[in-house]
Nucleic acid binder design. Structure first.
Length: 466
RNA sequence: GGUCCCUUCGUCUAGUGGCCUAGGACGCUGCCCUUUCACGGCGGAAACACGGGUUCGAGUCCCGUAGGGAUCACCA
């Protein structure tokens, strides 16, 4: 088997959406799996809709996802003279012809076909010779589709799919203004770039038959095709802005990890038995086209959250901190002091354990900054009401602790509780409420130790005074 | 409407004729652990779209019906 070459070929008319990201991931994974190359080509032949902003959004999205491509991204637009060359040669071979139909004429034929319930063939000028006047008009170049037989694609995902050639239209290769269409450009570019496997959304399945005919008219090899189902929104409808049709940058902003995203996208429509947690290294080893499902999958935030939480728990404190530092400082309102940073690093494992997304970490970690006075949740306020005197007492007891360690803190609280004949929980609960304001947190004694005596006493006295 | 594709718990899926009284995961939920919240552990509810075949035997094969999706541009 020759070296595997795959490619991702988005049109730069918007951000890199989730479906495109998955397509890119599958192409990348497949190339990696077979030691091949993964290429990026920007399909920017539609000059009116293509933007620089979209191009950079796509590359930064792919970089964030860790999908690196070989060489420079290819601009399809810049290759238009080569496309034109191929169209001309098809014309010379008699495999294509000039079409002088106007937009109105074409629209009329199309409407008629639709009405008759037949396929639009676009063959108004097939096998016709223009008179002198018409010949002077601008013309488009159409492919002369075979009218006999059928075309079969052995799709690696969809299986063997056959379509009658009479269903295929004489599609336009070169527009009347001389610019190549997508249908021509993809075929030429994939051929010139030596692409061996075309892995793309199944919205292109119908195009594959038409592209096949261009390939065979040129006598070129047919690449292997794998048309993967699209991703739908939670309601089963096509993804829209309301759902997950956000750019990958939006997911980055929501606080998802690239590794979690890759794992989620991989499992959405592909499986390896009962395996759910599949780190990228493992995915490269396992990925194949055969196990891609044939039905469209729905996007599910809950599962993404779950995966994200999993990968978050596996990270080191030192790895997480830089990811949240900026947001943390923004939320606290000032740069992190060394002391705060140390507290956060110590508390990180327990903070990460109850977080799903990065913002949860910001919230949990901010508890370890100097943020007095704390705002209380309703529940915390209830726990505290009527306990002001006790909190004051506890504060006094803790103020007397000379060696601020978990053991000493715990001993102080226990002796306080015993002296008043109170159950430990009766004392612990209000302390927690006063010190955390009701935010989720781990072991209370550890929390007090990490926070430091001064900050703890401060927070307690805030509530004792209230 | 034409053409093509698809159909297992709410969701992602395992399943390639007997191992399926259908398995896993997310979500939901009961209990345990516990000073809170989590994590974790042990349970629970929850699906083969429908109707016909083929077969000793069908979630698995065939046909039909219904539903869903894609596409039908001088967009990509």
């Amino acid at each position: 088997m020759p070296k595997v070459i795959t490619r991702f070929a988005p049109s730069p008319t918007g951000f890199l959406h989730i479906g495109g990201a998955r397509t890119a991931l599958y192409n990348w994974l497949f190339a990696k799996r077979h030691g091949g190359d993964f290429l990026l080509r920007i399909e920017d032949t539609d000059r009116a809709r293509s933007t620089e902003a979209a191009i950079s959004a796509i590359s930064s999205g792919m970089e964030w996802l860790g999908l690196n491509w070989s060489g420079d991204a290819v601009s399809q637009f810049e290759r238009s003279s080569r496309h034109r060359e191929v169209a001309e040669s098809l014309l010379e071979k008699g495999a294509a012809y000039k079409c002088y139909a106007t937009a109105e004429e074409t629209a009329a034929v199309r409407a008629k076909a639709r009405e008759d319930g037949t396929a639009f063939r676009g063959d108004m000028w097939r096998d016709k010779t223009p008179d002198a006047e018409t010949a002077a008009r601008p013309y488009a170049i159409r492919l002369k589709m075979p009218r006999e037989g059928s075309t079969t694609i052995d799709d690696l995902v969809q299986g063997t799919v056959t379509v009658e050639n009479t269903e295929l239209d004489d599609m336009i290769l070169l527009r009347s203004d001389g610019t190549p269409t997508y249908m021509l450009a993809v075929v030429v570019d994939d051929h010139d770039m030596d692409v061996t496997h075309v892995i793309r959304g199944d919205d292109h399945l119908n195009n594959a038959f038409r592209q096949y005919q261009v390939l065979s008219a040129m006598g070129w090899d047919i690449p292997a095709y794998a048309h993967i189902p699209l991703i739908h929104g939670p309601d089963g409808k096509k993804l829209s802005k309301r759902h997950g049709a956000l750019g990958v940058d939006a997911y980055a902003e929501m606080g998802f990890l690239p590794e979690a995203m890759r794992n989620y996208l991989l499992r959405l429509g592909w499986s390896h038995g009962d395996d759910e947690i599949i780190p990228t290294e493992q995915a490269i080893e396992w990925f194949n086209l055969e196990n891609i499902g044939r039905g469209p999958a729905r996007f599910d935030f809950d599962k993404l959250d779950n995966l994200n939480a999993h990968y978050l728990r596996k990270m080191n404190s030192e790895e997480i901190l830089p990811l949240v530092k900026n947001e943390l400082e923004k939320s606290v309102g000032q740069a992190l002091s060394d002391i705060e940073q140390k507290r956060i690093l110590r508390a990180m494992p327990t903070v990460a354990e109850r977080a799903k997304r990065l913002p949860d970490i910001v919230e949990g970690a901010s508890l370890f900054c100097n943020i007095r006075p704390l705002s209380l949740t309703e529940k915390a306020a209830n726990t505290l009401s009527g306990q002001e005197a006790m909190i004051g007492g506890v504060a006094n007891e803790l103020a007397a602790v000379t060696n601020w360690t978990a053991e000493m803190i715990k001993a102080a609280i226990m002796s306080f509780a015993e002296a008043r004949d109170l159950k430990l929980g009766k004392v612990m609960q209000p302390i927690r409420a006063a010190v955390t304001g009701g935010a989720p947190s781990g072991d209370l004694v550890d929390l007090l130790e990490i926070l430091g005596q001064e900050e703890v006493l401060g927070r307690l006295s805030d509530q004792a005074a209230a």
